[in-house]
Amino acid sequence: MSTLQEVGDRESWRCWLCDEPVDPDMSVNDPRGPSIDSINTAKKGAKGKGKDGVERLAHRACNTKKGAVKPVVPWPDRLFVVDPAPIVETVEQLKRKGGRVAVARCPGKTDAEDAAAWLLDRLSRLAPEQRFETQIDSAGGGFLLVLKA
Rank of each mutant, 00 (worst) to 15 (best):
V22C: 09
D9A: 02
D30L: 11
R100P: 04
A85G: 10
G53H: 09
L79E: 12
R100K: 06
P107I: 10
V101T: 06
L57G: 02
G140V: 05
L119Y: 07
T90N: 04
C62T: 08
V103Q: 01
V69C: 07
E55D: 00
R32K: 13
D114V: 08
D114N: 14
D137H: 09
S2I: 01
A85D: 07
P34K: 14
Q135G: 15
R78K: 03
D77W: 11
C18V: 02
G99I: 01
S12N: 09
V54D: 00
G98L: 13
C15E: 06
V72T: 01
T134I: 12
V54E: 04
R60W: 02
R96E: 14
S27D: 10
A149I: 15
G67V: 12
R125S: 06
V69I: 10
C106A: 15
K70S: 03
A102R: 06
A102N: 08
R10S: 05
L57A: 02
P84H: 11
I39V: 09
K44G: 07
F143Y: 11
P84C: 12
M26T: 08
W16L: 00
P128L: 13
P31M: 00
V22I: 14
Q5R: 10
D37E: 11
M1G: 10
V91G: 02
I36Y: 07
P86C: 09
C106G: 14
P86M: 11
R131F: 06
G140F: 11
P24I: 00
R60T: 06
R10W: 05
S2P: 03
A149T: 15
K97S: 13
S2F: 02
D9L: 04
I36R: 03
R131N: 10
A139L: 13
Q130V: 14
A61P: 00
R96T: 15
S27V: 15
A115E: 15
P76S: 13
P84S: 13
V101Y: 03
R14K: 08
K95W: 01
R10G: 02
P74G: 01
D37N: 03
D19F: 10
R78T: 05
A112E: 13
G45M: 15
L4Y: 00
A112R: 06
V81A: 09
V82P: 03
V81W: 12
D121F: 04
L4S: 00
T3Y: 01
L145D: 04
A58M: 07
W75M: 14
A127T: 11
W75V: 08
H59G: 06
D37M: 03
T64I: 08
S38A: 05
R14M: 05
D137G: 08
E6A: 14
H59V: 05
K44S: 05
A46R: 09
P34L: 14
L119M: 07
N40M: 03
D25M: 13
R78N: 06
V88I: 06
N40I: 09
V88T: 03
V91H: 00
M1Y: 02
D83Q: 15
P86I: 10
T134M: 15
G108W: 00
A61W: 01
D121M: 03
A117H: 08
S12E: 13
L126I: 13
D83E: 11
V88A: 07
K70W: 05
L147G: 04
V7P: 15
T3P: 05
D23R: 04
W75D: 14
N63L: 07
E6G: 11
R125T: 09
D25C: 12
